[in-house]
């Protein structure tokens, strides 16, 4: 098989840059490679194949070739494959070689799968049993479909996946959305620096809200209030908390309205900080509770007195609204 190979100098303008069927590198920082080639030249030759029209299809070495193009080279020595070469075998060798020296990112793995299915027309079971384990996915058939979805995603989503700033769990969620929604979601995730659990939570809240109010995810996220929160000059953690509070209020408006009214009422009682009044979880039962924390008899007495005063002035009567709440409107 190695006899197929010929070493040959190829002009860069003879390379068919539009044919990226075998390309395996995506979303990688080229600056280090570029400066290295600039200093010591190209040690490992790119692999190309002669096309019918006499131009050259890049089989391996996209990053190196892009780097030397940017460095202003006009020609490069390549290993050249004839048109008759067994390209599946060569592709597999290139893949194995790549995997032995670096971890492919998720988008690169998706492109490998896309090539195997789209260019070589391999049946799904062959991909699943022979190639998925090689790519680190076991033999889970769900990954075949999932990686195919990655290739259809908006560039920003692909970049975030490649850089591992977006959880792979978001693939199925994002794949159901139009590209504008994907971009808006990923942009919010990146700006707010959401970890993977938060991404999952945001996806669930947004997809439910979007269906509930019949607005697209992009429309929801482009709202004035949301943009104000995301763009605030505050640490990501604080903006995230505010973002989720805002999102939950929109997703659960009935509960949030009642919760806000309750918190407002408690604030207006001006109770000492060691006295707390709580409603039942989600207002599910008519049982509330009062908690008085104390480290001395005096602190305890203070708490009890404060409550007794509020009771005597009738301020606690409004509790009934929160123990057995009624909806004001017909829902």
């Amino acid at each position: 098989m190695m006899a197929d190979l010929q070493r040959q100098t190829v002009a860069l303008n003879e390379l068919d840059w539009s044919d990226d069927r075998f390309r395996m590198s995506y979303f990688r920082d080229e600056s280090h490679l570029r400066s290295s080639i600039g200093r010591v030249g190209l040690l490992h030759l790119p692999l190309v194949q002669v096309e019918e029209n006499g131009r050259y299809r890049i089989v391996s070495g996209w990053r190196r070739l892009m780097a030397i193009r940017e460095l202003g080279w006009t020609e490069v020595k390549c290993s050249v494959l004839p048109r008759s070469a067994d390209m599946l075998e060569w592709y597999r060798r290139v893949l194995e070689e790549n995997l032995s020296v670096r971890e492919l990112n998720l988008v690169e793995k998706a492109h490998v799968l896309g090539c195997l299915r789209g260019v070589f027309r391999l049946p799904e079971d062959v991909v699943r049993t022979e190639y998925l384990p090689l790519l680190g996915f076991g033999r889970d058939p769900l990954w075949v479909a999932r990686l195919e979805k990655v290739l259809e995603m908006a560039p920003l989503a692909q970049k975030a996946l490649a850089e591992d700033r977006l959880s792979w769990e978001m693939i199925d969620f994002l794949a159901k959305l139009p590209r504008a929604d994907q971009e808006a979601f990923v942009d919010a995730v990146l700006q707010l620096g959401m970890g993977k659990n938060r991404q999952r939570e945001a996806a669930l809240l947004l997809s439910d809200l979007s269906r509930r109010i019949e607005q697209s995810v992009a429309e929801i996220l482009s709202g004035e209030e949301c943009r104000r929160i995301v763009g605030k000059q505050q640490p990501a953690g604080a903006r995230q908390s505010e973002f989720f509070a805002w999102l939950r209020r929109r997703r659960y408006p009935l509960f949030s309205r009642l919760e806000d009214a309750f918190r407002q009422w408690v604030r207006e009682l001006h109770l000492p900080p060691n006295v707390q009044i709580e409603h039942s979880p989600y207002f599910e039962s008519a049982r509330g509770q009062v908690v008085i924390r104390f480290r001395s008899a005096e602190e305890c007495e203070k708490g009890v007195r404060a409550l007794a005063e509020r009771a005597a002035s009738g301020q606690l009567r409004r509790l009934e609204e929160f123990l057995n709440p009624k909806l004001q409107e017909q829902i």
Partner: peptide, 15 residues
């Protein structure tokens, strides 16, 4: 609007 009830099962908001 569904929330966990007293038995942990999700139910509509009580009101």
């Amino acid at each position: 609007e569904l929330f966990p009830g007293k038995d942990g099962k999700f139910r509509y908001f009580r009101p």
